[in-house]
Design a protein around this nucleic acid. Structure first.
Lengths: 345, 345
DNA sequence: TACTGTCAGGCGAACGTTCGCGCGAACGTT
DNA sequence: AACGTTCGCGCGAACGTTCGCCTGACAGTA
C-alpha cells in the first residue's frame, strides 16, 4: 500500500518561514521566539496536521518511551478476567504521561528471560512491568543484574528490595475470615494453594492471623492445600461436610473463586445451601461470582488502581524522579453476597 | 537510572575489523563477504550481545513494524474472557513475523477516531486490527479515506469491501438450534440482542435459518430482543415459563452466556431443571459455563485462530503480498453440557 | 601487456528529530 | 560613541540504521 510521505518538521518550517530546528523548539516548548512567529508555527502544524515522528524523536533522545509487559496465559478453560482492567488501566495511565505499552509473548522456563533481554538489547523498551511474580523470580534477578528499571505487580522474597505494587492478600483473607467470625462462625475451614507461592502463602497468613486474633484455634485438618481448581475445592469440601454435623466446618474461605465454587457445589450436592446451612467466601470477585447460585461473597482487588500505580511508579523511576513510594500495598474490599448468609436468599 | 551505552553496529564492526555498513549487510543477509569475514562478524555480534536498534532501523526503513490495537473495555461486572486469548495469539503471531502490537486506549464517540489518527500521523503503527466493529463503523470509513491498512475482527455493512476475519455467528446459532431440534424440541425460544448490531443480527439469522430448514414456524413472542444481561435473560425466560406447560418453550437458545444463565436461573426459580425439564444453550463458552449448575451448553469461538488470522492477513497486506484471502470466516463449535439434556445430570 | 569481469567490502547519504552553540540585530548602559 | 546584554533564531552535529553506488584487487582472456 502506497502512503503519501509523512509531513515533517521541514514541511512545517517551510510553511511558517523558519528553519525546522526552530519549529522543533516551539513544539517542545524550549523556544525563545516572537509570539507572532510562534503563532505562525502553530498555525502551520495545525494546517498540515503535523505530529512529530515518534521513531525519529526516540532515536534522537535515546529513549523508546515504551514499557514492556508480558503475562502468563491462563489455561483455556479458565478466564483471566483481570487482564482487561489491568492492561486497560496501564495503557491509559501510560498514555497520559507520554508512554505506551509493549506487550510481548510469554515464554516458558529459561527462555522467559530471553524475551526481556531481547527487548532491552534492541532498545525497544525503557522498563518493564512484571506480573505473576513469585519467590526467586528469575526476571527480577536478571533485571537487577542489568540494572534495568522495572516494577513488579506482586511481591517476592522479602529479603530482596525492588519496587512493587501489590494487593494485600493477607488483608483480604482477614476481611473474609473476620466477616465469618462476626456472623458467629467458629468452625472455619480454608481452601489454600500448595505451599511455595508467594500469593498463596500471603493470603493464607491473613486467615491464620484473623483466627488467632479472635482466639479461635486453627485445625490442621481444616486447612487444605490443593491446586486452585473447581474439582479440588469440591473434593475437599465434600470430605469436610461428610463429617458429623455438629463437628464439621460451618464456614469456608477460599483463596480464589474457583475453589469456592467447587465448595459451593459440594455443599449443594449434600443438600446444604450456602448462605443458609454454611457460609462460603471466595477471592477475586470473578464476574461469575454474581451469576452462580447462590451468588458468591468474595474479595475484590482494586485492579485498575494497581495498574495505574505500576505505571506511575515505573515512569517516575524512568524520569529520574523519586516516586512517592516504591513499594505500594493496596487494600482489597469484601463484597458480601448470599453465599455467606448476610443477605436473605 | 544510568544505563551503559547500547552496543551498536560500530562496536561490532570495530571488533570484527570491518566497517559498520558491512556488518549491517551481513546481519540482513545482503552480504557479499568472505565466509571467514562473515564468521568473524557473527562471532563479534554474539560476543557483544548485539541486537539492532529497532528505533534506528525503523527510522531508516520508514516503517514501525507495529500494529495498533484498541478494544472497548467491558463493564466492571462483566468479564472479557476473550481478551487474554485474542491478544495473546495476535502477539505471538506478530512476533513470529517481526511485528509487535501497540495497544492504545479506547475513546468514546467522536474522539475514538482521533486515537487512530494520532498513531498514523506520528508514524507509530503500520496498520490496525479493529475489533467490536459494527454497521457504519467510523473507524473503517476513516481508515479507508486515509488509505491506511487494517483488518477488522468482525464484519460491517455488506456493501463496503474491506479485509476482515470473523467467526460465523449464524453458523454458531444454527449449530445450537439444530442441536435442540435433534433432541426433539420443537418449541424453541431465542434470547437476542436489540436490532442494529451486526453480530446480533447475524447470530439471530442462524437461529431463524435452522428453524426454517426444519420446517418449524417461528413464533414472534418467543423471540425477545433485550440487552445481553443476566436480568434480561431471567425476565424473558420467566415470562415464557409462566405459560401453560404444554404451550411454553421447551428449548431456549441465547446469543450469549449471560442471557442463557439468566434463563437458567429463571427456570430453577420455577422448579424447572435445565437439562431435564427444558434445554438451554448459550454462546461464547465463557469459563463460568462449566462451573454453574447445571453446566451450560454453549458455542465456542476459535478465538486464538481468529487472532492469528487477523495478524496474518494484515501483515500480508503490509508487506505487499496478496493474502490467501482477505475475508476469512471461521466456524465455531458447539460444546454440549448438561443444560441441554444430552448428558445425564 | 592491456582489457574485462567478478568478488569483497568501503563510502556517502538519508531517515526526522533534538540539542548545544553561535551570531547578528536591537537595546540599554557608561 | 563605544561597549556589553539580551533576544530571536539559525547552524551543525548526532542518534543507529539501510541502501545504492563505487572501488581496488585479483583472475581470466585476448
Amino acid at each position: 500500500m502506497l502512503l503519501k510521505r509523512r509531513t515533517t518538521l521541514k514541511d512545517v518550517a517551510a510553511r511558517a518561514g523558519v528553519t525546522y530546528q526552530t519549529v522543533s523548539k516551539v513544539i517542545n516548548g524550549r523556544a525563545q521566539v516572537l509570539p507572532e512567529t510562534e503563532a505562525r508555527i502553530w498555525e502551520a502544524t495545525r494546517a498540515l496536521g503535523y505530529k512529530p515522528s515518534h521513531t525519529a524523536r526516540s532515536l534522537r533522545v535515546q529513549r523508546s518511551l515504551m514499557i514492556g509487559y508480558s503475562w502468563v496465559p491462563t489455561r483455556p478453560d479458565q478466564a483471566n478476567h483481570i487482564l482487561d482492567m489491568f492492561l486497560g488501566s496501564m495503557i491509559e495511565e501510560a498514555e497520559a504521561v507520554g508512554y505506551h505499552l509493549l506487550p510481548f509473548p510469554y515464554r516458558e522456563g529459561d527462555a522467559q528471560v530471553n524475551g526481556y533481554r531481547e527487548l532491552i538489547d534492541s532498545g525497544r523498551v525503557d522498563g518493564f512491568v512484571l506480573s505473576s511474580v513469585n519467590y526467586d523470580d528469575p526476571r527480577i534477578r536478571f533485571l537487577q543484574e542489568r540494572q534495568y528499571p522495572f516494577v513488579a505487580f506482586g511481591r517476592s522474597n522479602p529479603a530482596i528490595y525492588f519496587p512493587y505494587v501489590d494487593v494485600d492478600g493477607a488483608a483480604g483473607l482477614r476481611l473474609a475470615t473476620e466477616h465469618l467470625l462476626s456472623l458467629g462462625h467458629r468452625r472455619i475451614a480454608v481452601l489454600a494453594w500448595p505451599a511455595g507461592s508467594q500469593v498463596g502463602d500471603n493470603r493464607l497468613s491473613g486467615f491464620l492471623a484473623a483466627l488467632a486474633a479472635a482466639g479461635v484455634p486453627k485445625r490442621p485438618e481444616w486447612m487444605v492445600r490443593a491446586e486452585g481448581t473447581f474439582e479440588a475445592g469440591r473434593a475437599a469440601a465434600a470430605r469436610w461436610l461428610a463429617g458429623d454435623p455438629s463437628e464439621r466446618p460451618t464456614g469456608i474461605v477460599a483463596l480464589n473463586d474457583t475453589l469456592a465454587l467447587g465448595a459451593s457445589r459440594a455443599a449443594q450436592e449434600r443438600g446444604l445451601l450456602p448462605g443458609r446451612d454454611l457460609a462460603i467466601v471466595g477471592f477475586d470477585d470473578a464476574p461469575m461470582a454474581q451469576y452462580v447460585w447462590p451468588p458468591l461473597s468474595s474479595v475484590r482487588q482494586p485492579i485498575r488502581l494497581a495498574g495505574r500505580k505500576c505505571v506511575e511508579v515505573l515512569v517516575a523511576l524512568l524520569e529520574g524522579r523519586t516516586p512517592a513510594a516504591t513499594q505500594v500495598l493496596l487494600t482489597p474490599e469484601l463484597v458480601v453476597r448470599a453465599s455467606s448468609g448476610q443477605q436473605q436468599i
